[in-house]
Every structure is written in C-alpha cells, then in structure tokens.
Amino acid sequence: MLDLFSEEAPWLEPLAEGAAILRRRARDEAAALLALVDDIAAQNPFHHRITPGGHRMSVAMTNCGDFGWSTDARGYQYSEYDSVSGQRWPAMPDRFHQLAVACAEEAGFPHFQPDACLINRYAPEAKLSLHQDKDEQDMRQPIVSVSLGLPAVFQFGGFERGDAVQRVLLEHGDVVVWGGPSRLRYHGILPLKAGSHPATGAFRYNLTFRRAFR
C-alpha cells in the first residue's frame, strides 16, 4: 500500500478533475534523465526562441521526438525539423517515452503515446507566462510534465486567462499530468528563484510530453 505520509514514496496529489501531481515520481531516475537531456542538447543545443510578437523567451528550449514545438515570426508550430538548424529533432529516448506513458496511466490516461517532448531550461528569473497548450491536433491526449532541478512555482488556472490560479511548488522529480476536462486549462511558471541544486546547478529543467498529431 502506498504511504501518503512518507517523505520517500511518490504519491498522487489531485489538482482538478483530470489533473494531478505525481510527487517524486521521477526522482529515482532523474540522473539518467538528465544525462539524456545532455545527449539531446549536444545534438540540438538549447536556444532562446523569438515569439511572433518579437520577444525573446526567457526560457531556453530544445526538443526530441518525431516532432518539436517552436516559435518564430511565423507563429507557434510543430515540425519535424528545427527552424534554427534545419535539422531533424533528436529521437525521443526510450526511457523518456516509457516514463511519460507510465505517468499518464497512473494519472488515469492509459493510452498516451507522445510523439514530441519539449525540453525547457530555466535560469534564475526565467518564467513561462500563463498559456494553454492548444497547438496539438489530438486533445484527447494529456500533457505530461516532468520537473528536474531547482524548485519552481507552477500556476494552474481555469479556462480563461483571468481565472483564479492555484500556485503549487514543484520540486525535483515531480510530474504533473493534465488532460480530459482539464486539458485546456491555463498554466505557467513564476520567475525562477536563484539557487543551486546538486543535480542541475543553477538551472531547472522541464520535460513536457505531448501528442502533437493524430
């Protein structure tokens, strides 16, 4: 039986209907995940994308999988190729895929098959403004988001930008899953506080798994 009061065991913390945090779910394999992030970044370095409005994103990003998400003057899009390098995105590691599928199932979404993983790197003061993940074709599939490194405050709101938001601290190894009735909720990350984590130094990494195309 899962001990909900254990400091060591992972547990499921509901956020809303169709949304939950799997506390510490990825902590034991975090070192292996971060090593794979390094491998991916060696093939496709982290880059600060420019939004359609001309703003430089504070978060640096790369991708892996059949498709990658990016933004530029043309808008937000998924593509098989990186618009900066012109190269195909690195393949999604099996370990990434297996973790995403398992976490989705544990949160109540047993048929998740991600084809894209957006990898965000946060330095101090980097943030992600409230937004919806709505560039995907298949809204039946959830979002699976893995936090590694420095803690961050996750905002989880409603279906309008001005709705009230929950603010929850995400720590190393926490996984957030949302889908179904919560699939289009607004969410974001408050500016990252400076610090040092044994596994990632001054950074926070976030792996966000999606199903981009049907």
Rank of each mutant, 00 (worst) to 15 (best):
D82V: 03
S85E: 02
P110R: 06
P114W: 03
M92N: 06
H172A: 00
Q155S: 13
P93W: 06
Q137Y: 04
D163R: 05
R204V: 11
L22R: 11
Q166H: 00
S6N: 11
E136P: 05
M61T: 14
G108C: 04
S83T: 13
M61W: 00
R185V: 02
D3M: 01
K134N: 14
L34T: 12
D3R: 13
D72R: 00
R27C: 06
F5P: 01
A26E: 11
L34H: 15
T208E: 00
P93C: 04
G162H: 12
R74L: 04
D66C: 00
L22P: 11
I143C: 03
P10N: 04
G162M: 08
A194L: 12
P14W: 08
A42S: 14
V101Q: 15
A212L: 03
M61V: 08
R183Y: 12
P124C: 05
H172F: 06
D39C: 10
P114Y: 03
S83A: 12
V144D: 04
F109C: 00
G157K: 02
R25I: 11
Y81T: 14
F96M: 04
A60Y: 07
T51R: 06
G53A: 15
P52E: 09
C103S: 15
M57K: 15
A60D: 05
P151D: 01
P151S: 03
P198G: 13
R25D: 14
I119F: 04
F154T: 03
F203T: 11
E17M: 10
S58R: 12
Q77N: 07
Q141H: 03
V177Y: 07
A123I: 00
A16Y: 05
E136I: 05
V177C: 13
F109Q: 05
H55C: 00
A20H: 07
P90L: 03
F112Q: 08
R121G: 07
A31T: 13
R25N: 12
E8Y: 11
F112V: 08
P93D: 05
C117I: 04
Y76H: 10
P110H: 11
T71N: 02
L22V: 12
P93I: 05
H47D: 09
V37W: 07
T200K: 03
A164S: 14
Q155W: 00
F213V: 14
Q155M: 14
N63P: 01
E125V: 08
